[in-house]
Design a binder for these strands. Structure first.
Lengths: 356, 356
DNA sequence: CTGTTAGCGCATTCAC
DNA sequence: GTGAATGCGCTAACAG
């Protein structure tokens, strides 16, 4: 049998209450007594039963998720995954609230972070915007001993506990590598379509992509970045203009959102399927385009995995426990039309009701 | 507050023991009483606290993992992941034993399955071999109400509860798609290197690959399948012979193991890097070859994920609970040299000690 | 057939 | 400073 608090108490010759005080680093124990207990713990190899502790405490974990609002399919899919987690709350002892704020708006995000702090939750998960004020707001949370996990887009320079998202430089490099190889012998310039250079994930993808294209496929000119603000209508207009300006475009890397607009522009062009297109995030739009050959590859991050991982990490941080590193690494999924998962698994919808 | 057994008892006007009998479907309750309790459960929306139940039962889950022996890097990585799970046993309330049996040997596997049944564990995970005797042995376990999860290679036609592995037809198709595109304009036949047609995963990969090559890239002839028995020495010899017989080979799809032999043959050929090579499973050998350009892409299944998933599913089946479908879907990871994860995450080694 | 009671491992009053 | 007693939600003897 695995040792319990009773065993520690017996071994150290003290009572349960004293053992508990030492275990939970509470005051009111003489140093000698404390050391006696600590040695006993060490000696008999005690490890706390978290489940029993949580039961005794009737512990629940109040978490706040802060996401961008708007009709970005990926973000709505992310929100659906948070709702799926909410439906599991009873089992997972969580109480999750969702706060949405306008995209690409640092002030709104700071306000949301400060409001979250006011309710002192057990943890906060946030899709970050890279700005000094946001960093400061995150650090205020951490100063209040509230664990913070960044979701999808990281916040370098902040004191966030963890980042639940992909390595976006590697994602950009991967896109570059696929683009170069898929183009094969074909010539022609390559266009890059981004949302906003305000968010770190977009900047990093761009850097990775440019690096590989210049290193390994210098034959293809890189057109100036098109910033579509993740807005389908704007994207469609800008891409159509780009086609007019450079009819010989051989490839497009869409590293942000608003792919509905891109797909519409490609369809309008008619011969769009000869252009090599690589996009991010599997939504119902990109999935359909992949299936008909308008898009050649989709790089994806699994929103469900990100949400579940964020919750696991926040719990662990709240309890001061370790996490299984590999389990929390978010992969860069590469989808061709040949390895598309069943529809239920796309970021579009929660994974409820999947066959098995 | 969430309702408890006490609330049910009060609402139904019975005692705790009766409630417990109904909840755990034990005999010795009059039908009227049972119905009264069931209605109360329904009415107040009771959901059992699994953690508390496990605490009261001091429940542990004895599991048996049956893996092939031999020096197959992927399988040894899988075993390392099981050992990593064993190191978490205290926290996860598991008691896991590992049994290894010679690869591609149905009789040995049947014997191992029957021995496992003799100790009546809470669940069995097995890397299956596709044969009627093995199916029968698995079904004997199921007949004894022991949950069974197949790992890596499935066992169609059996009553196994779940398969923790990738969709191997999709994997083969994906390999075909990448092969065709990476070859671009280049001509020349394509060779396929397999381990054994005895295991289902190899057969399925082959089918998927052939299908796509014939549909979409009919310009490339497909050479007869080379069966290397996952043995590096044999693989090296057979591949070298294939190079001699067909010097104009443009691509190789290695869908099994023994890639050390393939890599050695490619190195010996010298101009090997002009051949497009797609292999399975990220091990230290394939990782190194990917980095130097001898291999162009590696399709991978995350052994750590498979093991953790198998354990989660076995637990859920043992308790009659539901699983989160999407969390248990094993992805086909596609690795180029640009999106290689850090070394700790390769299938070669357990994920202990990863930075974060 | 049904109810009473005593734990599972831990946290937390409230006395001493 | 320290200890004894009670309860978290559930299960399992053991009575009745």
């Amino acid at each position: 049998m695995r040792p319990t608090v009773h065993d520690i108490a017996a071994a150290a010759g003290v009572s349960l209450a004293t053992v508990d005080r030492v275990l939970n680093q509470r005051a009111g124990v003489r140093t000698v007594t404390r050391e006696k207990v600590e040695q006993a713990i060490e000696r008999i190899g005690y490890v706390r039963d978290v489940a029993a502790a949580n039961l005794a405490k009737s512990r629940v974990y109040p978490f706040v998720f802060i996401l961008p609002s708007g009709d970005n399919s990926f973000m709505r899919g992310l929100e659906a995954q948070v709702r799926a987690a909410i439906s599991r709350s009873t089992f997972e002892r969580t109480v999750i609230s969702i706060v949405t704020v306008p995209a690409f708006n640092p002030e709104a995000l700071v306000a949301a972070l400060d409001e979250a702090r006011a309710v002192s939750p057990a943890g906060v998960a946030v899709v970050a915007i890279d700005s000094p004020e946001v960093i400061a707001a995150v650090d205020r949370l951490r100063a209040g001993r509230i664990p913070v996990v960044t979701l999808v887009s990281d916040l370098a320079g902040s004191k966030r506990d963890h980042f639940a998202g992909v390595d976006n430089i590697a994602a950009g490099r991967t896109a570059g590598s696929l683009m170069g190889r898929f183009l094969g012998g074909r010539s022609g310039p390559v266009a890059v379509l981004a949302g906003s250079m305000l968010v770190r994930d977009h900047r990093e993808r761009l850097d990775g992509f440019h690096a590989v294209m210049k290193e390994s496929f210098p034959g293809h000119a890189l057109l100036p970045v098109i910033e579509g603000q993740d807005d389908p209508a704007l994207v469609e207009r800008l891409v159509t203009e780009a086609f007019a300006a450079s009819p010989e475009i051989a490839g497009i890397y869409s590293l942000g959102a608003g792919n509905r607009g891109l797909i519409a522009a490609l369809q309008r062009k008619g011969d769009g399927s000869t252009i090599c297109v690589i996009a991010h995030e599997l939504t119902r739009h990109t999935r359909a385009a992949l299936n008909v050959g308008l898009i050649d590859a989709v790089l994806n991050q699994d929103a469900g995995h990100e949400v579940r991982s964020a919750i696991r990490v926040l719990k662990a941080k709240a309890d001061g426990l370790a996490v299984i590193g590999a389990q929390e690494r978010i992969r860069i999924d590469i989808f061709l039309k040949d390895n598309l998962p069943f529809d239920q698994d796309s970021n579009q919808e929660p994974e409820q009701g999947r066959a098995d």
